[in-house]
Computed example of a mutant assay.
Amino acid sequence: MAPLSDLDVDISDVDTVADRRDDVLAAVREHAGRVAYNLARLQGGDYGQRSFSTERGEWTVKYEAGDLEYLRYKPQGGGETYVVSTQQPAEPEPLARALADYAAFVESYNDYVDSLDGMLDEVDDGFPPVESTDTVVDERDRIVGRIEEACNTMAGELQRYEGTDYGTYSARVASTRWELKWDLDGASYLRVGGSGGVYLVSQYGPPSAADVREYAPAFGGFVEAYNDHVADLELDLERIELSDRT
């Protein structure tokens, strides 16, 4: 990668750089942009920076989304020059001093890339096979499907009794709060453990297999609580019927 090979400019001459600064900076931006692009690929990210040392100073390449954001030069004597930046271009004299060290920067970058050659040769890619979760997921979905079917049945009955389009029914099973929310489409969710609890039935996806294992065995207790609730409602209705006959 020869720096500025297509630009016939004496980059050590301040007057020449001043006269042709726009051309010089365009060439540097294009050339250093290739460095930034390759660094982004090498580092495995769209954003980052890396510094390279020379005998005269330090160069820093910063890139965003794979494109060069800036190229900064810090000479050993102090100060800094943004050879490429989003701000106004550098003054000709510090720019010329920086560009006099540009070839050394490219060599430092190339040495860095060369140092990485073969670094992955000893990496073993004979990874063990990855086990499938199909069996667990199928069983999880089967159990959740039965729970959801029962919840939809309860939701339909509650909607008929309440006479409203939306509602909730809650009960405690072994001191744990269970809540069924229903709407016109059936069960909206079945949540265990209050507002921060686990959703066994939800519109946003199934629960984990671990949550199903923990809470599914207690679902029968929730159904029993619902049945007791319905039985109490029937008794209340019978009392109303008896009172109407008197």
Rank of each mutant, 00 (worst) to 15 (best):
P206H: 10
S5R: 11
A150Q: 14
A98Y: 00
Q43M: 03
Q88T: 14
L42N: 03
Q87S: 14
G167H: 06
Q49T: 02
G45I: 03
A218C: 00
Y112G: 04
P207E: 06
G186N: 02
V61E: 02
E80Q: 15
S195E: 15
E241M: 10
S51R: 10
F105W: 07
A2E: 14
A231M: 03
T54N: 13
L233I: 12
E30L: 07
Y199K: 03
E131Y: 12
N227D: 03
A155G: 06
G163F: 03
Y47D: 15
A155C: 08
R56H: 11
E179I: 05
A36W: 01
R239G: 06
D244P: 00
Y70T: 05
A171D: 01
D125F: 15
R146G: 02
P217N: 02
R146D: 04
T246S: 11
Q87N: 13
W59Q: 05
S132Q: 09
G145F: 04
R97H: 15
M154D: 01
G186T: 02
T135C: 03
G33R: 01
S115M: 10
S115E: 11
G194A: 08
K62P: 00
A104N: 11
G45L: 06
F52Q: 07
L42W: 02
E224V: 10
V173P: 01
L120A: 11
D10V: 09
A100R: 12
S12L: 09
R56F: 07
